[in-house]
Amino acid sequence: MEERLGVRLFHRSTRSITLTAEGALFLERCRRILGEIEAAEAELSGAAGSPRGRLRISTPQLSGLIMPALDGFMAQYPDIELDVDLSDRMADIIQEGFDAVIRTGEQHDSRLVSRRLGSCGQVLVGSAAYLERHGTPAHPSELAAHACLLHKFPATGKFERWPFRLGASEAQPELPQTFSANTIEVLAFLALQDKGLAFLPTFIVRDALSSGALRIVLSD
């Protein structure tokens, strides 16, 4: 090594061997390098056992569904910094730098890998007070006389269709556009305030149905 470096690292005698000034400097530098390697190994080993870093995600504006999951995630992974975008729009994962995006519906971007997280049913509901004042529709054709709270898809601006079981000769009823919004939590709130009928996911209205604040209509 001395020949390769071109300096003497040791003082040698028949009785002892000691470091030269250059040798002491070289030893100190080597110790620092080894220390950095050990620290890097320890850091990587710790990361493998306890995830850390920044995670940027986008989720729908469904606080009742998303927030309990985020609360549990933060408790389980306290070293991860969460950057959450609450939006129902169609996010560009690559351009906007998201690590993951949660959305409802089908995924059509071939550049992305998707995983199904679950599914839920939907029901048409109205408050007890609203139905007492305006009556309970017995057929989809009767919805023309009711206030309808409609969900509008953010990406397309189209209204979400209310699926009905109709006869072969029956046309899809045209719903009054009493109120429309691109987030369903607003529709759930207005339905609870006796403002009309809304077609909502069951997880949004489960408690209200149990308490009787909302009732299911046209369930057949």
Results as ranks from 00 to 15, higher is better:
13 S>E: 03
105 G>E: 03
98 F>W: 01
15 R>H: 13
113 V>I: 15
86 L>Q: 03
96 E>V: 05
74 M>L: 06
94 I>L: 10
78 P>V: 00
131 L>W: 03
107 Q>E: 15
117 L>W: 08
34 L>A: 11
100 A>T: 01
10 F>G: 04
70 L>T: 04
27 L>K: 09
79 D>F: 08
46 G>P: 02
19 L>A: 04
66 I>C: 05
29 R>H: 05
63 S>L: 10
105 G>Q: 07
133 R>Q: 13
23 G>W: 01
83 D>W: 02
122 Q>F: 13
126 G>C: 03
40 A>F: 05
87 S>K: 01
100 A>M: 14
84 V>T: 12
87 S>P: 00
108 H>V: 05
14 T>Y: 13
53 G>M: 02
42 A>K: 06
129 A>T: 13
131 L>S: 06
122 Q>T: 09
51 P>W: 05
120 C>Y: 15
92 D>W: 00
20 T>Q: 09
128 A>Q: 15
59 T>I: 14
103 R>I: 10
47 A>P: 08
70 L>K: 04
112 L>F: 01
108 H>P: 02
94 I>S: 02
130 Y>P: 14
128 A>F: 12
66 I>M: 13
104 T>G: 12
15 R>W: 12
70 L>S: 01
13 S>N: 06
95 Q>E: 11
14 T>D: 15
67 M>D: 10
101 V>C: 01
39 A>T: 10
130 Y>R: 10
111 R>K: 12
32 R>K: 02
68 P>N: 03
88 D>E: 07
23 G>T: 03
4 R>L: 14
35 G>L: 07
16 S>E: 08
12 R>M: 12
126 G>F: 01
10 F>E: 06
8 R>F: 05
98 F>M: 02
94 I>N: 01
99 D>V: 04
18 T>E: 06
22 E>Q: 11
20 T>E: 08
123 V>Q: 08
50 S>D: 12
106 E>T: 08
42 A>Y: 05
104 T>S: 12
18 T>V: 03
55 L>I: 09
112 L>G: 07
17 I>L: 13
35 G>W: 03
76 Q>S: 11
97 G>L: 04
100 A>L: 12
64 G>H: 06
126 G>S: 10
103 R>Y: 11
98 F>R: 02
38 E>I: 07
43 E>P: 07
117 L>P: 11
50 S>W: 08
76 Q>T: 13
43 E>D: 14
12 R>K: 14
46 G>Y: 09
27 L>P: 00
53 G>D: 01
112 L>W: 02
71 D>H: 08
70 L>E: 01
101 V>T: 01
12 R>H: 11
6 G>R: 10
127 S>Q: 04
13 S>V: 07
78 P>K: 06
13 S>P: 09
84 V>S: 10
83 D>H: 09
131 L>V: 10
72 G>I: 04
54 R>Y: 07
115 R>S: 10
119 S>A: 15
108 H>T: 08
13 S>Q: 05
119 S>T: 15
116 R>K: 15
103 R>P: 03
91 A>K: 06
48 A>E: 14
127 S>E: 05
58 S>H: 03
81 E>A: 12
74 M>E: 11
42 A>W: 11
4 R>M: 11
42 A>Q: 14
30 C>D: 00
130 Y>H: 06
106 E>S: 07
25 L>Y: 00
31 R>Y: 01
132 E>F: 07
94 I>A: 06
114 S>C: 07
110 S>G: 00
